[in-house]
């Protein structure tokens, strides 16, 4: 049993989220296993992003958003508790957004920013190493190595998104949250990102929101299906996509609604 606890990167229990009076997440309990890719699927507006953003407290900045429930990092640290600062938490749980959002600075600066503010490098050469390694892992290094000082917003959409992934992994997180990272990209760029996710899962726990069921089935080991703010079903991807327990899940994956 003890072993089981430690194998969860994040455990949540009875999570509810309101925007003002409007309920967005209704009593969700779900645990995310370490070094797995977990897909969150469901029709748009069902609360996937909302739930994802609770995990690294990105919802804190939204005035009207109220989060209730229990969130444990590595089974012990209360994510919303006093024992961890929100900045440190986000150092451990990185995030990649739906629309690529590189800073309008140089490619190098984009990746180096996180390590700089967290003091992860004490010399310039250490910083260079971190940037290089992160870009490498994000599969971008070869494409940009000659123009590290170019402004990042000049990159193509797919490159920008990989840069954002490099930026996220440069601070050595344990978990990476991705909110529909491919929805703004063309199929080729999407394929590259999916490849990348496959490689990254060796080192990181990845939780990804996607509206594409084929993508979920290609990249994830576990899948969670949300509907109208509720978690309908959660399990191994193969099981969810072949013989789901719930009728609603079945309807959704066979395209009867959503």
């Amino acid at each position: 049993m003890v072993e089981q606890v430690n194998s969860f990167a994040i455990k949540t229990k009875n999570v509810s989220v309101h925007y003002g009076n409007k309920m967005a997440i209704d009593d969700v309990t779900i645990n995310f296993t370490k070094n797995d890719v977990t897909s969150l699927i469901g029709p748009s507006g069902c609360g996937k992003s909302t739930f994802l953003r609770c995990l690294n407290r990105m919802n804190d900045v939204i005035e009207s958003c109220k989060v209730q429930g229990e969130f444990l990092l590595n089974g012990v640290t209360d994510i919303y508790g006093d024992s961890i600062q929100v900045e440190t938490l986000r150092e451990k749980i990185g995030m990649v957004f739906q629309k690529p959002n590189p800073f309008p600075k140089s490619i190098f600066e984009n990746v180096a920013y996180g390590p700089k503010i967290h003091g992860l490098a004490s010399t310039q050469s250490e910083l260079n190493d971190i940037v290089m390694e992160s870009l490498n892992r994000a599969g971008l290094y070869e494409e940009v190595k000659d123009r590290m000082d170019d402004i990042a917003t000049g990159l193509s959409g797919g490159q920008q998104q990989r840069l954002c992934i490099a930026r996220a992994i440069a601070i050595r997180p344990e978990i990476i949250l991705m909110d529909e990272p491919c929805s703004a990209l063309d199929p080729i760029a999407t394929a590259r990102i999916e490849e990348l996710i496959n490689e990254l899962k060796e080192k990181y726990t990845i939780i990804i929101v996607t509206h594409s069921m084929s993508q979920a089935s290609r990249i994830s080991q576990r899948t969670a299906f949300f509907h109208l703010g509720k978690l309908i079903e959660h399990g191994d991807t193969s099981k969810i996509f072949t013989k789901p327990d719930k009728e609603q899940t079945n309807d959704y994956i066979t395209g009867r609604f959503g």
């Binding site: 990105m58 900045v61 986000r90 990185g94 957004f97 959002n101 590189p102 800073f103 920013y113 503010i117």
Partner: peptide, 19 residues
Amino acid sequence: SIREGALAVGATKMQTVFH
């Protein structure tokens, strides 16, 4: 989205604003 990007790598509000 720029603010979110900075916050997501663990910048404080003050750092996000000033950087």
